[in-house]
C-alpha cells in the first residue's frame, strides 16, 4: 500500500504539487492523468524521491520513504520512462541487470533473472541478450526498459509516459502486455499519461491532476458518471462518455445467457470493441467465447446500450 499524505512541492513561489493526499492499493494499476504542467510527473517522482517534497509524507507499506537514502529506495522501486532511457553503452542483458548488480546479487541469479525477463517480454535471450540498444526497434527498446525496471522484483513500478514514443499499433500491444504481466507478477503500478484512452484501458483507479491539485481520484466509471469538476468533464469529453463507460469493462462482464449467430467475440475484448463489432456486422447479438475458446453466452446490442447509459 502507498499512502501519499498531504504532499506539496514548490519551487520558489511556484507550487507544482499542492497538498495531495491519496492511497494506492497493492496489486492495482493507478493512472495519473492531467495536462502538461499539472504536476503529475512531479507527484510520481516524489514517490521514489527523484524529487524531494517540500512538505508531507509518503509511506510505502507503512514505512516513511525517507527512512532510507534515496538511492536505496530507488533500487526497491521499478522506474520506466518515456524514450526508455536505456544505457547505450551496455548490452540488453547488462541493461536489465542494472539494479540487481547494484544490489550485489550473485552472477547466477542475475543471469537467470535476465533470461526469465527476456522470455517474459517475448525477446529471445539467444538473439537479444548481447545486442546493444541501438540495434533494437522502438518497441523492443521499450520492452527492455520495462524489463529493466522489473529486474529486482520490485513491489511497486512507477511509469512516466512509458508508451509515449511508440506508434499506435505497437502501443496497443505494449499496453496489453503490461496488463498481462501486472496480473502475473502482482506488481503495484502507478503510471502517468496524458492519453485518456490509455488511462481508461489500464486503470483500476484514475487520479486527475489539475494545476497541482488532485481534483478527483476514483474508479474510471466514477469519473465518467460524476466528474468532480468541469476540468474532469472536459478531459473525459462529453461526447465520449458512453464509449468511455464501455471501454472500462470487458465483454465477459456483460455476458448474458443465450445463443447468437455469426463470428464469436472473445471475452477479453472491451465492451466498446464488442459494440463496434456488432454495429459493423449489423447484428443484434454475438456469441462470446472464453479464453479456452468455449462459448459462455452472448452479448447483445440492447445490453451494451443499457450499460453505456448514465446510471441512476
Amino acid at each position: 500500500m502507498i499512502e501519499i499524505d498531504g504532499i506539496t512541492k514548490r519551487y520558489g513561489d511556484n507550487i507544482v504539487v499542492n497538498n495531495v493526499t491519496m492511497t494506492i492499493n497493492p496489486r492495482t494499476v493507478t493512472v495519473i492523468v492531467g495536462t502538461s504542467g499539472s504536476g503529475k510527473t512531479t507527484l510520481l517522482r516524489m514517490i521514489n524521491r527523484l524529487v524531494e517534497p517540500t512538505s508531507g509524507t509518503i509511506r510505502l507499506d507503512g514505512e516513511d520513504n525517507r527512512a532510507v537514502p534515496g538511492f536505496e529506495l530507488r533500487r526497491r522501486i521499478g522506474y520506466a520512462i518515456q524514450g526508455h532511457g536505456l544505457f547505450p553503452h551496455r548490452t540488453v542483458a547488462e541493461n536489465i541487470a542494472t539494479v540487481p548488480v547494484l544490489l550485489g546479487w550473485e552472477t547466477g541469479r542475475i543471469k537467470a533473472k535476465v533470461a526469465e525477463l527476456l522470455a517474459l517480454f517475448q525477446l529471445d535471450p539467444e538473439t537479444f541478450a548481447d545486442r546493444f540498444p541501438h540495434e533494437l526497434s522502438g518497441g523492443q527498446q521499450q520492452r527492455v526498459g520495462v524489463a529493466r525496471a522489473l529486474a529486482a522484483e520490485p513491489n511497486v513500478l512507477l511509469m512516466d509516459e512509458p508508451f509515449g514514443a511508440l506508434d499506435p499499433i505497437i502501443r496497443a500491444k505494449a499496453q496489453e502486455d503490461l496488463l498481462a504481466i501486472q496480473r502475473l507478477l502482482g506488481t503495484t503500478i502507478i503510471l502517468v499519461t496524458h492519453d485518456m484512452e490509455e488511462a481508461f484501458y489500464l486503470a483500476d483507479r484514475i487520479a486527475v491532476m489539475d494545476k497541482g491539485e488532485l481534483v478527483q481520484y476514483g474508479p474510471p466509471a466514477e469519473l465518467v458518471e460524476r466528474p468532480a469538476t468541469d476540468f474532469v468533464e472536459t478531459l473525459i469529453g462529453a461526447t465520449e462518455r458512453p464509449f468511455r463507460m464501455l471501454s472500462i469493462e470487458t465483454a465477459g462482464a456483460a455476458v448474458e445467457p443465450g445463443d447468437a449467430q455469426g463470428a464469436a467475440i472473445a471475452a477479453a475484448t472491451t465492451q466498446r470493441d464488442a459494440l463496434a463489432e456488432l454495429l459493423w456486422s449489423g447484428r443484434d447479438a454475438a456469441p462470446i467465447i472464453g479464453a479456452d475458446g468455449q462459448p459462455i453466452g452472448r452479448i447483445t446490442l440492447d445490453g451494451l446500450v443499457r450499460r453505456a447509459a448514465r446510471r441512476r
Binding site: L50, E72, I81
Partner: peptide
C-alpha cells in the same frame, strides 16, 4: 541524453 541520466537516477545509482 537526459532520458539516460534520468533512468540512471531512477535505477538507484549513487
Amino acid at each position: 541524453p537526459p532520458a539516460v541520466m534520468e533512468a540512471a537516477r531512477g535505477a538507484g545509482m549513487t
